[in-house]
Design a protein around this nucleic acid. Sequence first.
DNA 1: CCGCCCTTGTGAAAGGTTTCACAAACCAAG
DNA 2: CTTGGTTTGTGAAACCTTTCACAAGGGCGG
Lengths: 215, 215
Amino acid sequence: MSGRISDSTVRRLSLYLRMLRDLERAGVEFVSSSQLAEPSGATSAQVRKDLSHFGSFGKRGRGYSVEGLVRALEGILGLSRSWRLALVGVGKIGSALLGYGGLAARGFDVVAAFDVDEAKIGTRAHGLRIRPMTELRPVIAECGAEIGVVATPTEVAAEIAAELERAGVGAILNFAPIELSEVNGVPIRTVDIVLELEGLSYLMSEAGRRTGSDA
Amino acid sequence: MSGRISDSTVRRLSLYLRMLRDLERAGVEFVSSSQLAEPSGATSAQVRKDLSHFGSFGKRGRGYSVEGLVRALEGILGLSRSWRLALVGVGKIGSALLGYGGLAARGFDVVAAFDVDEAKIGTRAHGLRIRPMTELRPVIAECGAEIGVVATPTEVAAEIAAELERAGVGAILNFAPIELSEVNGVPIRTVDIVLELEGLSYLMSEAGRRTGSDA
DNA sequence: CCGCCCTTGTGAAAGGTTTCACAAACCAAG
DNA sequence: CTTGGTTTGTGAAACCTTTCACAAGGGCGG
Ligand SMILES: NC(=O)c1ccc[n+]([C@@H]2O[C@H](COP(=O)([O-])OP(=O)(O)OC[C@H]3O[C@@H](n4cnc5c(N)ncnc54)[C@H](O)[C@@H]3O)[C@@H](O)[C@H]2O)c1
Ligand SMILES: NC(=O)c1ccc[n+]([C@@H]2O[C@H](COP(=O)([O-])OP(=O)(O)OC[C@H]3O[C@@H](n4cnc5c(N)ncnc54)[C@H](O)[C@@H]3O)[C@@H](O)[C@H]2O)c1
């Protein structure tokens, strides 16, 4: 039980949790691994294997208690608490995030926002005052933000990530299309839209080549 | 050579291409697999293996011609042409995308935008007229958009994706936090920010548990 | 209490990806 | 032309993830 857990397992656990919360809201009491598998495109064996890394949560013949498994997964994923985010770069993507209710709804609260643009500093975006970069360290220390969000132009993204790490965040979410290397064990996840589009481009080209050259 | 190529290989090919384009702009003529590996966090062996699925592009003892490999990867990834995107849902995320120069710069042009909101229909966002949903099919057919982008509320995301597919797009990029199942071989990539944050939550909790319980 | 049906938890097998390690190839210098 | 230094391309090995398949356990009706 519980060695090093793969990224894809963690991903799926999040998806299971989503479904379980829906089931809980709907008043369902028990769920089987195969029902749980469906929405995430996994198999029932995979659900059981994923869970087995962390313990034994089901009742044979009966399935999993929805409520019990929700609590268990929240514990495993660290979602029984809420997390505080510090956003750097209140441009197009940064503003979209500030206005996105889906974050707070799932326990991710943006508690501070920073920018270099003098015109933006001091103004409010979605109820949050935009602060100058000079306040990054003290404010992050004070409000105890655990996750830093990089939404600045690509050229400065690496520098901002380093700055956030020095300011004490425990993880970074990056929107700049650049591979940031994690330092000091601070994990970094990059949301790279262009990379996703290029993946789709490959698949479409591949499909075209196959149908085009077969005959 | 060339069986089914894994997702992670395609991902890395995109990253290699990015670096190669920078090198080309900088006037570098040759590059070795180890130089190419660095920025994407891969190993030189991985670079060579990735490329070997598609052919033989290097010169032993010398490395890869930057220009040659750029062209080769553009061909493989389908990036020697540009792609047309149709955006559905011009809200916070949709607007951010419309204003994002990084898409067009990399050959992804948003050529049509759709919404149900009467207040938005007819207005222009970043030079593009926002169209009613009734025009989805004819306009996509007419302008030949290959990629559909779903930026609507989660509740309607699946329906919109199906609509896009019926309208004839060859791939879908989805921003709603829901796992959409691909139909008719139309690939779907979901950008799920909350899932990324939950992955970070897991890693931070895990780190806490390890340092917390060890002694 | 018994027997039946159902579903879990999990070793073992299969399948896939990454790393290793080295022969083959290329260039440049002498 | 030969030698030496360098880097590719690639089977084989190591590693990791997913799938298989079944014994073990639990509930329920009789
Ligand atoms: N807009 C999108 O839809 C989109 C999509 C994918 C990726 N991205 C990426 O996200 C990042 C931001 O994109 P955007 O479109 O929001 O850009 P933007 O120009 O709208 O916003 C960038 C913001 O960062 C601020 N900034 C610049 N330098 C800074 C610094 N050194 N410190 C702090 N703040 C600084 C700017 O003042 C601005 O407010 C870019 O890397 C972009 O490639 C954007
Ligand atoms: N805002 C963010 O930063 C953010 C981040 C991650 C994910 N998302 C996801 O992206 C999606 C859009 O989020 P948003 O913040 O832009 O929301 P939003 O409410 O700002 O925009 C949604 C837009 O979709 C339009 N719309 C609604 N129903 C429609 C329909 N049936 N057909 C066509 N258009 C329709 C609305 O009129 C609106 O313009 C949501 O699924 C959200 O969960 C948003």
